[in-house]
Amino acid sequence: MTDPVMQARALERHYNVGGGLFGKTRVLRAVGGVDFDLTPGKTLAVVGESGCGKSTLARMVAMIEEPTEGTLSLDGKPVLPEDWADLRKSVQIVFQDPYGSLNPRQRIGAILEEPLIINRKEMSKQDRQDKGREMLRLVGLRPEHYDRYPHMFSGGQRQRIAIARALMLDPKVVVLDEPVSALDLSIQSSILNLLRELQDRLHLAYLFISHDLSVVRHVADDLIVMYLGRAIEKGPKADVFANPLHPYTKALLSATPRTTPNAAKERIKLIGELPSPMAIPDGCPFAPRCWKVQPDCRAKVPALSGGAHGAACFYPEGEAAGD
C-alpha cells in the first residue's frame, strides 16, 4: 500500500458569530475533530446533509481556510499558513457551480494559464500555451476552444474546464466539492468517467464531497459520514454501504431514493430536522433524532471507534456491534 499523501488529524474549524454592539460572540463549530488520510489513486468521499461541515472541510484541505485546531500534513510535512502559497500547487479544488467558478471575462486560455503565470514564473509563454492546449485535450475538449469565453460552453463543458484548470499545476490532491451536483444526469456520467480516467492516469488523490449517495457509491473507495461537524462513521465504501453501523448512516441510506420501483424496502423515518450548528446538543449530536436513544447518549459524546470501519455510537447497528 502506498503512503498517504495528505493526513488530517483532529481537524477543527470554529467561527465566531453574532456579537453586534452589546451581544456576546458565540462560537460555531463547523467542523469538530475529523481525521482522514488521502492516498494517491484513491477517492475519499465525504457525505452528509447541508450544514454538516463537509464544504468547510474541503476549504481547509484546499488551504482556503485555516484550521482552528488540529494538523494537516502534506507528504509528511505540516501544512502551515506561512507555506500555503507554496503548498497550494499540490492541492487544487473544483467547485460545484461551473457557472460561478469561471471568470466570464477571461478566455479559456487565460483561465488555464493563470495558475502557471503565478506559480511557474520561469515558464515561457509558448510552454504555457502548449500545456493549456494539452490539458484541454486531456479533459475531452478541442484545442480550438482555447480562445473562447466561458459563456460559449455548456455546463458539462465548463466543469471540464474547471477540472483542467485544477490540473494545470500537476497537483497530488484534488478536492472535488460537489462536482456533478449542478449537472444533468446525461452529463454527470461523462464527468464522473473523466474524473476516474484522470485519476488512473495521473495517480491523483481525490477528496470527493457530495450529498448524493448514489454517486458516492459509484466513485468512492473510502467514506466518511458527517453529521453536525463530526465524523460519525468512516470505513471502506463496501462495508459502510453493506453494513452501516451508525443509526444516522442507516437512516441516510434508507432515505436515498433507489431507482427500482416497487422494491420492498423499509424506510427509516427520521423525526425532526438537523439542529442548528449554533446549538449542538450535549452528548451525541444525533441523539434528538435517533430512534434508539438511551440516557447515556445525551450525557456523553461517543468517540469514533477505531479500526478500518468505525462509528461514533454507543449502540451501533449491524453485526460489528459490541466489540
Binding site: Q188, N193, S214, H218, V219, R258
Partner: peptide
C-alpha cells in the same frame, strides 16, 4: 447512465 446501475468502473454516457 445512473451511477446506481453501474456494473463497470466507467459509466455508459
Amino acid at each position: 447512465a445512473l451511477p446506481e446501475r453501474a456494473t463497470d468502473k466507467f459509466l455508459p454516457t
